[in-house]
């Protein structure tokens, strides 16, 4: 095995070296005051829904949107405080508080909605940035048919380059970093779009405009 490594590297090293070109300048677009409008337009174009809320209204808005969709079992991190906010008027809220091996059945078959925070948003492409962690694991935004994400308006960046630089991603990445732009989709059958092929059929973003 390490023989393969040595052989491959030796062959690559034996080659005549070429020039290493510089990276030419490239400036991705910025949107100024139209950031949110751009984010909304891009996400809606790929079948995502964007709803503006505030830190005072979001739990109630979330409750009604889940009710409209007939959701009876949702999954969310306990520190979001949904149980307290809904006081028994909302759907059952399950925490993803055990390893997936113990949760697999519920996750694959029962949970109708996954609720997560987004670490940031990207206006250019209508993208959510998720850093899954112990409270909001990776599959929470993937297995349930509905994904609702909370995005603080203040974290909305113009583009990926700006965001990476601002948050210094290169200094330390999480186990899994996700860029999510819309619900799961496919066009493999005659280029006809179909949603929810393996992941969520629906993506709703609640934008907290006061944060």
């Amino acid at each position: 095995m390490s023989e393969a490594r040595a052989n491959i590297l030796a062959r690559l090293r034996a080659a005549r070296r070429g020039a290493v070109p510089d990276r030419p300048d490239w400036t991705p677009p910025a949107y100024g005051p139209d950031r949110l409008a751009r984010f909304r337009a891009m996400l809606e174009a790929v079948h995502g829904e964007v709803i503006e809320v505030t830190s005072a209204t979001w739990t109630e808005r979330l409750r009604t949107l889940l009710a409209e969709r007939g959701v009876t079992t949702a999954m969310a991190a306990p520190d979001l405080g949904l149980d307290a906010a809904w006081a028994g008027r909302g759907p059952e809220v399950v925490a993803y508080d055990r390893p997936v091996e113990a949760m697999k059945d519920r996750l694959v078959h029962d949970i109708q909605a996954g609720i997560t925070r987004a670490r940031a948003g990207i206006a250019e492409t209508g993208t959510l940035v998720l850093w899954p962690d112990a409270a909001e694991p990776r599959l929470l935004s993937l297995l349930p048919p509905l994904h609702v994400a909370l995005l603080r308006l203040g974290t909305l960046a113009d583009n990926l380059s700006a965001l990476m630089a601002e948050q210094n991603w290169a200094a330390g990445l999480p186990t899994n970093l996700l860029l999510i732009s819309g619900p799961s989709k496919t066009a493999d059958i005659e280029q006809t779009l179909a949603y929810g092929v393996h992941g969520p059929k629906e993506l709703v973003v609640l934008v907290l405009t006061d944060l």
Partner: peptide
């Protein structure tokens, strides 16, 4: 490839499941 500004998912993996993490 498909005329999309970005794919639905960009999945960036840097570690196996770490202590305390629930999945992966």
């Amino acid at each position: 490839a498909t005329g999309q500004p970005i794919t639905t998912y960009v999945n960036m993996i840097s570690h196996p499941r770490r202590d305390g993490e629930r999945d992966g």
